[in-house]
């Protein structure tokens, strides 16, 4: 069995929907990390069947909106001296800025590039979002 040792000081992002771990990993630029990082895909989960986990042996800034967008059921554990000192509860964000990009070729965002891409939550269950400019609806990370 694959073994990943526990970390002393850092962050564990647990219960990520299987398949989305790599996207979180890339968004957090962990491929460029000079500290220990582990991305575990398809780990066994009693609750979810399988899940992804990211262990980061460092304290870094986390964009909780992004994590909430990908999977509001994921958990973020802050670790110090090998123990969880804080669990962050994620929420589906009402508004996200510069996380999703509008793919509508008719949208003004396709030709003007000096302002943020803003999306507003439309349906919490489906996790669908509406572009502030063209109203195009997207489901960036479908519920699996």
């Amino acid at each position: 069995m694959l073994e990943i040792t526990s970390i002393e000081k850092g962050i564990v992002i647990d219960h990520i929907t299987a398949g989305y771990g790599i996207q979180v990993f890339n968004y957090l630029n962990l491929d460029k990390a000079d500290y220990n990082v582990a991305l575990i895909c398809n780990a066994y989960s009693q609750k979810m069947g399988k899940k992804d986990i990211i262990k980061i042996n460092n304290v870094i800034d986390i964009n909780y909106d992004f994590l909430g967008l990908i999977d509001p059921n994921a958990t973020v554990n802050i670790i110090e001296e090998g123990k969880t000192i804080k669990k962050v509860k994620l929420e589906v964000p009402e508004r996200v800025e510069n996380i999703i990009r509008c793919k509508n070729p008719r949208c003004v965002t396709s030709v003007e590039h000096y302002f943020p891409h803003v999306f507003h939550l439309v349906d919490k269950e489906k996790r669908s979002y509406r572009c502030e400019y063209c109203d195009d609806i997207v489901i960036p990370y479908p519920v699996k």
Binding site: V108, E112, E132, Y133, C134
Partner: peptide
């Protein structure tokens, strides 16, 4: 008037 969708919303900001 603009051919791109959302251009007036952007301008209004």
């Amino acid at each position: 008037r603009h051919p791109k969708e959302g251009a007036p919303r952007l301008a209004s900001h």
